[in-house]
Simulated scan of single mutants.
Amino acid sequence: MQLLDNKIIFLTGGSMGIGLECAKKYAEAGAKVMIMANDEASLIESMKILGEGHSTFFGDISISSNVENAIKFTLKQYGKIDVIHNNAGIASPSKSLDQTDEYEWDKLFNINLKGVFYTTRYGLEALKQTKGCILNTSSVVAEIGQENHAAYSATKGALNALTKSMALDYAKYKIRVNAVAPAGVWTPMLREWAKQQKDPSKIEKYLDDIHVLGHCPDGDVIADACVFLVSDKARFITGNIMPVSGGAELGYRRFE
Rank of each mutant, 00 (worst) to 15 (best):
D106R: 13
K24E: 11
L207E: 09
S64Q: 09
L50V: 05
W193H: 13
G251C: 08
G79F: 03
C22D: 11
A154K: 07
H211N: 09
K48F: 00
A194N: 09
R121I: 00
G51T: 08
H54D: 00
S138V: 07
I71N: 03
E102Y: 13
I63E: 12
E125V: 10
I35E: 00
H215F: 15
N160H: 10
T130H: 06
K131Y: 06
I175L: 12
N87C: 08
D82L: 01
I222V: 15
Y170I: 06
A29S: 15
I71A: 01
I111P: 09
S15H: 05
P182N: 06
F58T: 03
A158T: 10
D169C: 04
G157H: 11
V67K: 04
E68P: 00
G30S: 04
A234G: 11
V212T: 14
K128L: 06
M242P: 09
T100H: 06
S96N: 12
L75F: 00
A88H: 01
N148V: 02
K174M: 07
Q99P: 03
V221Y: 13
I111Q: 08
M166G: 05
Y170W: 13
F255M: 13
A31I: 03
A151T: 15
L135D: 06
L190C: 01
E28P: 10
A183I: 05
K107Q: 13
K25I: 00
E249Y: 12
V33L: 04
I134N: 11
W193F: 13
L250S: 12
L162N: 01
S96A: 14
A142S: 15
I134F: 07
D232V: 09
Y118V: 02
A181R: 10
A154N: 07
V33M: 05
T187L: 02
G89A: 15
Q99R: 13
A248E: 13
D224A: 14
K72M: 07
A181S: 15
I222Y: 00
A179T: 05
A179C: 10
L213M: 15
S245R: 01
L75Q: 10
L127G: 02
K114E: 02
P217C: 07
E204S: 13
T56D: 03
K7Q: 14
V185C: 11
V180T: 02
I8H: 08
T120Y: 01
S46Y: 03
F255C: 08
I84W: 04
K172T: 05
P188R: 10
E68N: 06
A158L: 02
N240E: 12
T238E: 12
L3F: 06
I144V: 15
E21A: 15
I9E: 07
D232E: 15
V177S: 08
G13W: 03
V180D: 06
